[in-house]
Amino acid sequence: MSTVVLLAVTGLGLGALYFLVASGLSLIYGLMGVLNFAHGSFLTLGAFAGFELTRRLGGDSWPAFVASLVLGAAVGAVAAALTELLLIRRLYERHIEQVLVTVGLSLATVALFEGIWGSDPSYVTAPAWLGETTQLLGARIPNDRFVLIGAAALVLLGIVAFLRFTRFGLIIRAGVENRAMVTALGIDVRRAFTVVFAIGGTAAGLGGVLASHYFGYVSPHLGGSLLIFAFIVTVIGGLGSLAGAAIASVAVGVLQQFANFYWGVGDLVVVLLLAGVLLLRPAGILGKKKVQA
């Protein structure tokens, strides 16, 4: 029983991490039709920013930890917004080329991270409490899982509130449905593009700092390895659906933990799940068939 609880909570934590990456991917794809290959780099950059900050301030203090989260999120947001403004926007409406540019960016940035921080793991320090465990239904759960799950829940709530209660949110929701019609109402939808990139970058940057605590280290390939699972999550959840991404993140994270523990094949089970979903529901759990003229 305690093993099941431990696996479930850890899986939920992993799912939370996937969601922090997948939420941005899904929003960006939904609104702009762009698959952002550089999203993993936003995450890695956020993680390294957090790492550098805690290294300087002393990683075991709570203020340093919180500051590293804020810095990671901010760095992710700025990197993402700049990517949109400088690279993506120049290729407006040319989706394949936009994808190619993000591919180039991810290659270049990962190499640059290796140049700066080396390809070996950089180990992070955290407040002692994060490394301790808490008893829950007989299982000893590492505390960082709770922080992860809480952060992902807050991000989900924050994005939902933003989408529901702000004008940009309104434009984004409408744009995901029918971008051409939004412009035909006199709205410059490109400004919303920068906003979704920044939101996605914020979540990814935050996810980077949290991932570095989940795994215990940062490496230049941290983002890339999470990105692939985030891609799977967005396809399973339905491209462009935030709720779908949330559900699929949890499903994939938990399934992966259980499959890893009992059979040692977590990654493969996830790919099988993807194949199964594609065979039964090619558009994903909550995806709609994209209607485009």
């Binding site: 690279l87 190619l100 591919v103 180039g104 960016l105 290659l107 270049a108 190499a111 640059l112």
Partner: peptide, 9 residues
């Protein structure tokens, strides 16, 4: 790879 990625972009 940094140079190749940049060239590609």
């Amino acid at each position: 790879l940094f140079l190749l990625g940049t060239l590609f972009i």
